[in-house]
């Protein structure tokens, strides 16, 4: 159990996202930017169990998943800046991050397909006896989409090695989950499809790590899919440039969740348990900040893609 690796990963996501938010405000990101701030414990706790052969599929709020799966921050930043050095070579942006070489099989601007695609990765794993898993990250908003119900059912009836990670941050853009869903017990909804379903504090990286570990162990052992209902909160706006409170949430609610910040609470826990010292955290902070700043400079100074290549890769022959 590498406690500090989990901390470092969460901090890398946080500092990268903060840089991206500032860059967006400065007009350096031509398109959208949906940050993962507040939800870092989930991608970190799940991806810590995965290898590059395991396939992750994600949604529009996917920077954290890409980073936790092993995409270098410089490639995520460069992608949002529209540069050829980005992980999608400038073809994707914030919502379309692809890095199959590390098993980041794509984020999507459409809510739901990742659930089905992860199920398909599970099918490949079984057919080819690969011992790998497919993982879908998605929000509570996806749980009212047909893809949620179709994907869970298929994974369940065929006992596929798939981990469905629902990041229930209470709002689908700005529509409350409690408004959109009569039964707000996400794990219960998932369990009706006949699969292992667990609720977990999504702001507690150790809790996510433990629950994901058990689910992934089951999947690799041929014991079928697992659903993780991770309760969390995004502390920034749905997308940069939008209000963080808007008409849909209160300052009190935001403050209460910020007090449960996954990084500061984990750090306090490691200190109080005597697992790590403030010196170690300071060292990690320096290293992560330096790496993120180097990534930012790399992204900023990278060239744009050549317009002559715009129609390349529509088909497999180029």
């Amino acid at each position: 159990m590498n406690y500090l690796a989990l901390y470092r990963q969460m901090l890398e996501i946080r500092r990268t996202e903060e840089h991206l938010a500032k860059a967006h405000q400065a007009g350096m990101i031509p398109g959208a930017c949906h940050t993962y701030v507040g939800q870092e414990a989930i991608a970190t706790g799940v991806c810590a169990h995965l290898t590059h052969d395991d396939a992750v599929f994600s949604t529009h709020r996917g920077h954290g998943h890409a980073l936790a799966k092993g995409v270098p921050p410089r490639e995520v930043m460069a992608e949002l800046f529209g540069r050829v050095t980005g992980c999608s070579r400038g073809r994707g942006g914030s919502m379309h991050l692809f890095a199959p070489e590390v098993g980041m099989m794509g984020t999507s601007g459409i809510v739901g397909p990742c659930i089905l695609q992860a199920t398909g990765a599970g099918y490949s794993a079984r057919l080819l006896n690969k011992g790998t898993v497919g993982v879908a990250f998605f929000g509570d908003g996806a749980s009212n989409n047909g893809a949620f119900h179709e994907g869970l059912n298929l994974a369940a009836i065929w006992d596929l090695p798939v981990i469905f990670v629902c990041e229930n941050n209470l709002y689908a853009t700005e529509v409350p989950f409690s408004y959109a869903t009569r039964n707000t017990d996400m794990a219960e909804r998932a369990s009706t499809y006949g699969m292992n379903a667990v609720s977990v504090d999504g702001n507690d990286v150790l809790a996510v790590y433990a629950a994901a570990g058990e689910g992934i162990r089951r999947a690799r052992a041929g014991e079928g899919p697992t659903f993780l209902d991770c309760k969390t909160y995004r502390t920034r706006a749905h997308a940069e440039g939008m209000p963080s409170l808007g008409t849909y949430r209160t300052q009190e609610e935001l403050d209460a969740w910020k007090a449960r910040d996954p990084i500061t609470t984990y750090r306090a826990h490691l200190v109080s348990e005597g697992i790590a010292s403030e010196d170690e955290f300071a060292q990690i902070e320096r290293e992560v900040v330096a790496m993120v700043e180097e990534s930012f400079e790399f992204a900023k100074s990278s060239p744009y893609p050549d317009p002559a290549t715009v129609a390349e890769h529509v088909y497999s022959d180029g």
């Binding site: 396939a55 790998t132 497919g134 893809a147 994907g151 298929l154």
Partner: peptide, 20 residues
């Protein structure tokens, strides 16, 4: 399959991305 065209086509999309 069950009668779930979107579901199994989405599933096959992910399968095609992962070696089958």
């Amino acid at each position: 399959t069950p009668i779930v065209e979107r579901g199994f086509i989405g599933m096959c999309t992910g399968a095609a991305m992962t070696g089958t």
